[in-house]
Every structure is written in C-alpha cells, then in structure tokens.
C-alpha cells in the first residue's frame, strides 16, 4: 500500500502534488479499459447465471467446465477485480474516509478483499474447467 494520505498539511503546502501522478493516470486508464472489458463480462455473467441458477454440479460442470466458456469467464472475472479495487479505492474510500488511520486501514482491507475474491473466484472456475 503506497497510497499517500492527503492531510490538511499536504493541502496547505503549495508544493505538494496531491499524491502519485503516475498511479492516478494508470488507474484512470485501467478503470476505463477494465470497464470496457466488463461489458463482455456482464453478458457472460447474465448468460451463465440464467443457465445455471439452481442447477446441480453436473450441469455447472457441463457449461462452465467447457474451456471456451470457463477460461474467458475466469479472465474477465480477474479483470473485474482490478475494476473493483480502483472503484472502491478512488471512488469511495479516498472521497469519503477522511480519518488517516481508517483511510489506510480501509484501503488495505479493499486490497485484501479484492485479492481474496479474485483468487477464490478464479481458482473455483479453473478447478471446474480442469478437474470437473
């Protein structure tokens, strides 16, 4: 976690640059690229959930276990995780959580949550693809 916390001291210092310019540009671009990819993810998600809602394991394996469905879905899902991290970090935590310690803590929790979700999600899909 290298996000700089913007304190009143930082704001009042005319020499400060409000954090990491390179990271901000990278996140701006990444959020839009991942957003575009998420259009495709949404179509996949609706298709998969509609087909498999309430289905048993055999049916899930039959559809999601098809590498042509499972592999792209896993990749698109991983990209969703990047979008989630930037959205929660830039869009919500940095705008609304002002207390420095809570700010740092929530940014770390954000990274942890997204990592956990991403790893378990991708691992589950790949398990279904490769081992049924």
């Amino acid at each position: 976690m290298r996000e700089t916390v913007i304190t009143k001291g930082v704001i009042s210092d005319p020499k400060s640059k409000y954090g990491n310019a390179k990271r901000s540009t990278r996140d701006f671009l990444l959020q839009r690229l991942s957003g575009a990819s998420n259009i495709l993810f949404t179509i996949f998600l609706v298709f998969i959930v509609v087909r498999l809602a309430g289905a048993d394991r055999a049916e899930v394996v039959a559809l999601l276990g098809n590498p042509l469905v499972g592999i792209p879905f896993a990749v698109l899902f991983a990209i969703v995780c990047f979008h989630m991290r930037i959205g929660m970090g830039d869009g919500i935590i940095e705008d609304y959580i002002h207390d420095q310690r809570t700010h740092r803590l929530t940014l770390s929790l954000n990274t942890f949550f997204v990592l956990a979700i991403g790893i378990v999600g991708v691992a589950s899909i790949l398990k279904i693809v490769f081992w049924g």
Partner: peptide, 12 residues
C-alpha cells in the same frame, strides 16, 4: 461479487 464467488466456490 462475494455472493457470486460463494456460488462458484460451492460449485467447485
């Protein structure tokens, strides 16, 4: 997304 992952993990 947590609910989606719980479903995927349970299916796996």
């Amino acid at each position: 997304t947590l609910f989606l992952v719980i479903w995927l993990a349970a299916a796996a």
